[in-house]
Design a protein around this nucleic acid. Structure first.
Lengths: 299, 299
DNA sequence: CTATTACATGAATATTTTTCATGCATAATA
DNA sequence: TATTATGCATGAAAAATATTCATGTAATAG
């Protein structure tokens, strides 16, 4: 039984007239008559008494009217919500990110995006590169920050070139260098992230053929920084992670200089979700505004 | 959009599988797939992500799920209520009656009927014969007590032959008669009901060619009795009206004896309303039980 | 690498909804 | 009282929708 038939019934009851109801709903009087007859047949009850002067609910019709109204209202709400979702003016965004982005970018991004689209809500998932890629692949997120190059079946929006920095205790002998030769990394106790195979520093050192002297490993970026700050060794991290830490550690660009490329990835399957589209467009704009002056460690 | 499609969607979301949902709802997997595609097309949104492992709601789907559930629940409640109404186990009965029935019969009738069908509710309308017939004709009541003969387009269930009695002040000279000759009515001050043309006593006297000496008229049966009780005159009323009044007035059968025939009338238009059917059947039984011994004034 | 599982798809069919063109009854009107 | 609107009913035709059948495709498990 189609919801329109309930609409016809409700309207007819309201107006006391099939003709007027049909008019109001933009269909023929015949349609209204048929529809209500069909309804009555389906329910096995007589719902209205027809008279020359119009129609009036029977007690049965009156009893059932409420339920039909509820259905019609549900339908209306469904349509309204669908409309908003279509417009991309409401919805839910599941966004994946890794630590540095989650800490230094996301708060501002969300604040600004929400100001534009107050009815879109966020669900944030934080993990390491590997987690994020997995979420993108499985559709657990609608958009995620990742590194380039990427082989994911996603639309990739490049956002930022993030310089990799050697970090040292504040008063380390090499803290004043203008560049830290990678090869010298093997001369220092090295602090590493766990599951490091996928991490920037590990990749970088491997590519450079430098075997670091790993003394400690940790899972957390900030624990790593804390270890360096306390003089336990040195490490290599992206500059973005260091925002606001200038007072506790020293950071020096590498020699040769290296970067990681941060991009926003939007899985093919989410690409035409309206809220996601809005977010993609927003981030594209946002990346243009990313201005180097705000960088914490300029040399 | 048919409610069944919402059912399919909700079930699929619940089970995470089109195949299982189709099975549960007794349709084909293909149907489920088509149905959800149609829904998505109609709403202009992608509601589920399909994978070999099954289906999972997109955030949009999740948003809309609630509304669809509401619609499905409304539909279920509608069907359930309709079922009860079909069975005649719930519903509403609008019953018309005149004073004597309303006062002396209805309370017991309702009590007993409600014991049988607790979910059927009553709406009572009281008036004079004329009102009642009007209500029957216009469909304002589903059943009503009326007199025979009746020319209404109704099913008529004869219930009771109600003797008409002369009523007199307790100590009236003729109070001890075993029968009151109608012709003698003209010798006494007569108390009449207003709009009396349609009333039993008026009809009766007219038929007998007796012109009563009308001293007072009132609209209310019990006001009339009170007038008689206070010695203002005599009158003629149906015995049913006198139940429990033996101590305040005297009542004597007429000579020749006369009756009014009480019946239940069920308009054609209400006849196959389930609750009404139940009431009709009940009243038919009830009338059989109407035993004369309980009569207040036996001679 | 193959088999299996689960959803998709296109064409055919069945069903339902909607319209058109009238009919029928009743209430108002002349 | 006959007449004329008005409002609902109805049957057949047309349009739209829902459902099935048969088959396709892609990912996953063995």
């Amino acid at each position: 039984m189609s919801v329109l038939q309930y609409d016809i019934f409700v309207k007819s009851a309201e107006l006391g007239s099939l003709t007027l109801a049909a008019e109001a709903l933009g269909c023929t009087q015949s349609n209204a008559s048929h529809a209500i007859s069909a309804l009555e047949k389906e329910l096995g009850l007589i719902l209205m008494q027809r008279k020359r002067s119009g129609v009036r609910l029977t007690p049965e019709g009156e009893r059932l009217l409420g339920h039909m109204k509820q259905i019609c209202q549900g339908e209306a709400m469904l349509q309204e919500e669908a409309r908003q979702l279509r417009m991309g003016e409401s919805g839910k965004l599941r966004v994946g990110s890794f630590t540095s982005v989650a800490v230094h970018w996301l708060p501002e991004i969300i604040k600004r995006f929400q100001a534009l689209y107050p009815r879109i809500e966020f669900e944030l998932l934080n993990g390491d590169y590997h987690d994020v890629d997995e979420w993108l692949r499985s559709g657990k997120v609608d958009a995620a920050f990742t590194r380039l190059p990427s082989s994911l079946p996603c639309r990739l929006i490049p956002l930022y070139e993030d310089r990799l920095m050697a970090i040292l205790p504040l008063h380390h002998a090499k803290a004043k260098l203008s560049a830290f030769p990678i090869s010298e990394m093997r001369d220092e106790p090295f602090i590493s992230l766990l599951e490091s195979s996928d991490h920037d520093s590990a990749r970088l050192l491997r590519d450079a053929g430098v075997q670091p002297d790993i003394r400690f490993s940790t899972k957390d970026d900030y624990a790593l920084i804390a270890m360096v700050a306390n003089g336990l060794g040195v490490s290599i991290v992206p500059e973005l992670l260091l925002m606001g830490r200038a007072d506790s550690i020293a950071a020096v660009p590498l020699d040769p200089p290296m970067w990681r490329s941060i991009a926003l990835a939007i899985p093919q399957s989410s690409e035409n979700r309206p809220a996601v589209k809005r977010f993609g467009a927003f981030m594209e704009e946002w990346s243009k505004e990313l201005n180097i002056p705000t960088q914490p460690f300029s040399k």
